[in-house]
Amino acid sequence: MMKHGAIFAVIAFILDRISKWWFLDIFDLPNKGVVEILPIFNVVMVWNRGVSFGMFSASDEVGRWALVVLTLVIVGVLVHWLRAAQNIWQSGAIGLVIGGAFGNIYDRVKFGAVIDYFQFHWNDWYFAVFNVADSFIFIGAVLLIINSTFGDDPEEQKDQN
Rank of each mutant, 00 (worst) to 15 (best):
F13A: 10
A101E: 02
K158Q: 15
H80C: 11
A58T: 10
K3Y: 13
D134L: 12
Q160K: 15
W65D: 11
D116N: 01
D16W: 09
F138C: 12
V10W: 00
R64V: 02
N42D: 12
V69Y: 04
N42M: 03
F138V: 14
G103L: 00
V97H: 07
W122K: 09
V51P: 00
V46H: 05
A133S: 05
L82M: 15
W65T: 07
A101F: 01
R64I: 06
I115E: 09
Q119K: 09
D28T: 05
R17D: 11
F41Q: 06
V79Q: 10
V109G: 06
G140A: 05
S91I: 04
I26M: 10
T149F: 11
V132Y: 11
F13N: 07
N147H: 08
V75H: 05
W125A: 10
S91N: 07
G151S: 03
G112M: 10
D16L: 13
D107V: 02
G140R: 09
I145Y: 04
W21P: 05
G92M: 00
V79G: 10
F13D: 13
V44A: 12
G151D: 00
F56R: 08
A9M: 07
A6N: 11
F102G: 01
F130A: 02
F8H: 09
G92Y: 04
H80E: 12
D116I: 01
F23E: 10
A128R: 10
G5I: 09
M55P: 00
V142E: 06
V68A: 06
N104F: 04
I18L: 13
I105F: 12
S59G: 12
N48K: 01
K20P: 08
F138P: 00
G33Y: 09
V73H: 09
V129Q: 05
A84W: 10
A101V: 04
L78M: 15
V46I: 13
A84L: 15
D28L: 11
N131S: 03
R17F: 13
R108E: 01
A6H: 08
I18H: 02
N87D: 15
L29A: 07
V77F: 15
